[in-house]
Nucleic acid binder design. Structure first.
Length: 645
DNA sequence: GTAGGGTTAG
């Protein structure tokens, strides 16, 4: 920061001498009472008053005001301050201000500081503050709060600390508003010790003081300390609850977030728009459709549907809970949409295998003159890779930089590698990675590895795994895919080698786990689950299904089973994959024709995919499965992914 | 005049 601390802390300099020839002489010219108010006067006033950008234009208006004997205070004074603040005409402005009887000068500078602190260059607020100090203008608490705000936005801890010193020196050290702003400033600058020190020292605190500390802690991942403070604070406000809920969502604990939301409801606090956004995000993560729907109704009743962010999160929640049509309905009903609304919808369509519609929405969006951002392109490329839209994907990737000046990030490269790999262009994908201007990460190599499995390229898979094991040697997923590649090539010895490597390194395969919610109760099934209270019934239901599946061409594919065992045992493992158990359970416990919604922690295996397609036909049900990457909507014997996954 | 919110590649 190129700013001298001394300009903040030194005793203020005496007034600089005014330029006499520049000082305005108000009230000298009298307006002629016989002259009718001319339209010119009105126009000049309204037009110039709000359009002047330089001191010379200001002087022109000023002269006019003096000539017409108009009230000086009708000048937009904070604009005068802004225009003159960083020009040699600083004193000219001050001279005008000195003639305004009913308003102390500092108030005018304050409103100027306010807009600078909140605007695009908060640094100017700090510079102006220094200038005011130099000319001995005495700041008030407002002045200080705006400068502190500027420091927060710039993460300028040392300047902030200096301003804090000024605050103490001026005797504002007990102003609660100001101290809250300073606590926030320290926390924003990452100086939690400074924030905590001041917090502990404060003789009075209000909910805002606590909320500031809690919020910043949650942002830094300090959920435990945040929760302690939350428990300790005397008067929790809606913001306190919201900060905690949002914090849990942010750190990947949506279940905790929802637990807290229920506590909040019991405590009788009324969720506001921000709370709703946080809870909906938690519902989206968990696929908690029932609660999501309830929050939706609540938002309707409370008038929160006018809020774009609420709607965007609502759309995202429905998308991630598998209700694409409802999401589209919310999107269509929105009064105002932002680029985020469009991006959410485009990404959502991609996730649901509706690539063409995603592309269509993108073209509607751009036709309407809306500018896509980098996230929009992630959704778009995602749509292309999942539908095998090779040329479209390449075109969009080129277009993002050429037409929109958006520099591709690792995510965009990841999509491109995925696009090429799925399409079978493994060599080109490999070249693409090698030529990337940024270092490829595990996701990028992982996309290529996935392509090697689909297109059964053992050699390339072996090459790719080297990079992956270097980047992330403990990620079980990579070993599993490689082992699958070997198994599919019937290189059993190599598959066994991979399993030994896993064992030696202590890497364990994450067990598959599926969730299904029936009548508000979520049931969890883990692969091979024999412990479920209704395990026997569920297995029996599966056997019945199996007998219906076989005549329709279902042939169990045991190659996906990695374990070293005989064929019968493999079948046993295969038949206890978590999504098969969840579907059997769902069929047993829901009325005919009701759709089944299942959430899975891993990707659906090829065998389950084939089985679920047939089950949707046999049972005449829609089965929506959200796996770790995307949605599969099984209906009438086929899947929305069109088997391209 | 102080605190809190939306989309993101395998």
């Amino acid at each position: 920061m190129l700013l001298s601390m001394s300009s903040l802390q030194n005793p203020p300099l005496p007034h600089q001498p005014h330029h006499k020839n520049k000082s305005p002489q108000p009230n000298k010219s009298k307006s002629n009472p016989l002259t009718p108010p001319s339209p010119f006067k009105e126009t000049l006033h309204t037009k110039l008053l709000y359009t002047f950008n330089s001191p010379s234009q200001l002087k022109q208006i000023h002269t006019h005001i003096l000539k017409t004997n108009t009230q000086l205070s009708c000048l937009p004074l904070s604009r005068v301050a802004l225009v003159c603040a960083f020009s040699p005409e600083f004193d000219y402005a001050r001279n005008i201000f000195a003639r305004i009887k009913d308003r102390p000068e500092i108030i005018i500078w304050n409103s100027c500081l306010h807009s600078l602190a909140e605007g695009d260059s908060p640094l100017d607020a700090i510079l102006l503050f220094c200038r005011l100090r130099q000319v001995s203008l005495l700041p008030d608490t407002f002045t200080c709060s705006f400068v502190v705000k500027a420091c927060s936005r710039l993460s300028e801890n040392s300047v902030g600390r200096a301003v804090h010193g000024v605050v103490e020196k001026l005797g504002f050290g007990s102003d609660l508003f100001l101290l809250n702003t300073i606590v926030h400033m320290y926390a924003c600058c990452g100086n939690m010790d400074g924030a905590r020190l001041l917090f502990d020292k404060m003789s009075r605190r209000d909910a805002v003081t606590w909320n500031i500390l809690i919020t910043q802690l949650t942002k830094l991942g300090g959920m435990e300390v945040a929760h302690e403070l939350f428990d300790e604070m005397p008067d929790r406000s809606v913001t306190s609850w919201t900060a905690m809920i949002a914090g849990y969502v942010q750190c990947g604990k949506p279940g905790e977030a929802i637990k807290l939301f229920r506590e909040m409801e019991e405590a009788g606090a009324k969720p506001n728009e921000v709370t709703v956004v946080a809870v909906l995000a938690a519902c989206a993560d968990l696929g908690a459709l029932d609660l999501g729907k309830r929050v939706h109704e609540y938002s309707d009743c409370s008038g929160y549907r006018k809020n774009v962010r609420v709607c965007n999160t609502l759309i995202d929640m429905y998308i991630k809970c598998g209700c694409l049509e409802v999401a589209q309905k919310v999107f269509n009903e929105m009064q105002e949409r932002t680029v985020v609304s469009w991006s959410v919808m485009i990404g959502g369509l991609a996730m649901h295998g509706r690539g063409e519609e995603a592309l269509g929405l993108f073209s509607t969006m751009t036709r309407m003159g809306l500018r896509p951002n980098s996230v929009t392109f992630i959704g778009l490329l995602h749509a292309c890779s999942h539908m095998g839209l090779l040329n479209e994907g390449r075109r969009y990737f080129a277009s993002m930089t050429r037409d929109y000046n958006i520099i591709p990030q690792i995510e965009h490269y990841g999509c491109m590698v995925d696009l090429l790999s799925r399409a079978g262009l493994l060599q080109e994908a490999h070249e693409f990675i090698k030529n990337m201007p940024i270092k490829p990460n595990g996701v990028v190599w992982g996309a290529l590895l996935g392509g090697c499995r689909v297109h059964k390229n053992v050699e390339m898979g072996e090459e790719v795994i080297k990079h992956l094991l270097e980047l992330d040697p403990l990620n079980d997923g990579y070993y599993v895919v490689l082992s699958n590649i070997y198994a599919e090539a019937e290189q059993w010895e190599d598959a066994a080698k991979v399993r030994r490597l896993m064992r030696d390194r202590g890497v364990k395969k994450t067990p598959g786990c599926s969730l299904i919610t029936i009548n508000g109760v979520t049931h969890e099934f883990v692969a091979g689950d024999g412990d479920h209270p209704r395990a026997k019934e569920i297995y029996e239901r599966w056997e019945v299904l199996l007998e219906q599946l076989k005549p329709r061409g279902y042939v169990p594919d045991t190659s996906v089973v990695l374990l070293d065992m005989d064929e019968d045992e493999k079948l046993n493992v295969l038949y206890r994959h978590s999504e098969k158990l969840a579907v059997s359970f769902g069929l047993m416990n829901t009325p005919h024709g009701a759709p089944l919604r299942i959430m899975k922690n891993l990707r659906v295996c090829g065998d389950c995919h084939a089985a679920l397609k047939l089950i949707s036909e046999i049972s005449n049900r829609q089965i929506v499965v959200r796996d770790r990457n995307r949605f599969h909507c099984f209906e009438d014997g086929s899947c929305s992914c069109k088997d391209y996954w």
